[in-house]
Design a binder for these strands. Structure first.
Lengths: 195, 195
DNA sequence: CAGCTGACAGATTTCAATATCTGTCAGCTG
DNA sequence: CAGCTGACAGATATTGAAATCTGTCAGCTG
């Protein structure tokens, strides 16, 4: 669409791919479309990404990483672990809910992409449970939580709150009492962690 | 397949429909197939079910009700509520896991059917959380659990354990550490309930 | 005459021909 | 000569005509 004289980089291709996915959706977005948007031939795209699948995987990773990055701040804070845990879970829920609510079509597009890239999703979940592990370990160290194995407990907390971050439940996130449901689960989980 | 002289009842039609669904899958199972299996014309099936959708809904309800029924025994027992809660959750997980593992194709068929009949699924969930509410209320009464609003807490417990009964997670149920994951979540939840 | 049949209209699905896309690579270009 | 192009073969998707299915109902049958 805006052919420039700038060098063709992986980054520029990823940007263009996101735009094409947003416009055409996951089923109709083709490598030819991406090349056209960049004003190059589709052969050039294959110089940077071996296959269409690799290109889509890279876009998916970028998108997932942006979500993780927005939460690292809470992990690093030097505050009461219980408050940090509550804030982290609420921030994750809020972020996901906003993405699903603000642009449902784009969200659906990324649901298709994550379905194609189970491995990237696995890495993302490892990343998120790693963040949770740090908070829970802090809580165990300060004595706020009673936990024998922080990584296992972090995974348990992540699974127990899945309803509020797993995209598969997105259709429930505009129920009127969803916040009350969230509070009830968080309360149950936090009580289960306390000393 | 086995044309009998017996009267055509809703029950016999449901039986035949299950069989046709098992044989042909949800996409190819037609009302004509069901009629053929019963040795009648398809017009006769429409005498008992107004539409194909109504027929499939009835089959779905029957299937869901069979699952709920298998758990009522645990609810009614006069034992330690915590043990009953653990047993109930384990029984639900075991039942679902067996269904998914024993006949994956049939399980996939019912996943399609439940997707078509969100309302019936809602009723099923209400049924299950109702059973949970009874156990949790017993726990509150005996002082084993500290709970202010049993129905709300029951829903929270149900949501927190979704990974182990929601069919959407069936693909994870044969992970080698799934039992450890289940134990970790149940432990967290039970600790959250205790006085 | 209660219950069933089967022909029918409109909706949906299937299938095969056609078009488009993916991934490669020999050669062009700046 | 590094990076890009565009023609190509095989794979995948689209399309529209034909086949099948859904739901109705007038009339048949036991």
């Amino acid at each position: 669409m805006t052919p420039t004289t700038e060098t063709l980089t992986a980054e520029r291709i990823l940007e263009a791919t996101e735009e094409v996915l947003r416009r055409h959706g996951p089923a109709k977005a083709t490598v030819v479309d991406v090349a056209r948007a960049l004003g190059v031939s589709h052969g050039s795209v294959y110089r940077h990404f071996r296959t269409k699948a690799a290109l889509r995987e890279a876009v998916t990773k970028r998108w997932l990483d942006r979500t993780s990055a927005s939460l690292t701040g809470i992990v690093a804070e030097a505050r009461d672990p219980e408050a940090r845990l509550r804030d982290w879970l609420a921030a994750l829920f809020t972020a996901k809910r906003r993405k699903a609510g603000d642009d449902p079509e784009l969200f659906a597009t990324y649901q298709v992409l994550t379905g194609e890239n189970v491995e990237a999703v696995g890495a993302h979940i490892t990343d998120l449970t790693g963040q949770l592990t740090r908070i829970i370990r802090d809580g165990a160290d300060t004595g706020a939580f009673t936990v024998t194995d922080p990584p296992t407990t972090a995974r348990a907390v992540f699974h127990a709150t899945a309803r509020f971050h797993d995209p598969g439940y997105a259709q429930d996130w505009d129920q009127p009492d969803i916040d009350a449901q969230f509070e009830a689960v968080v309360e149950l989980v936090v009580r289960g962690l306390r000393a």
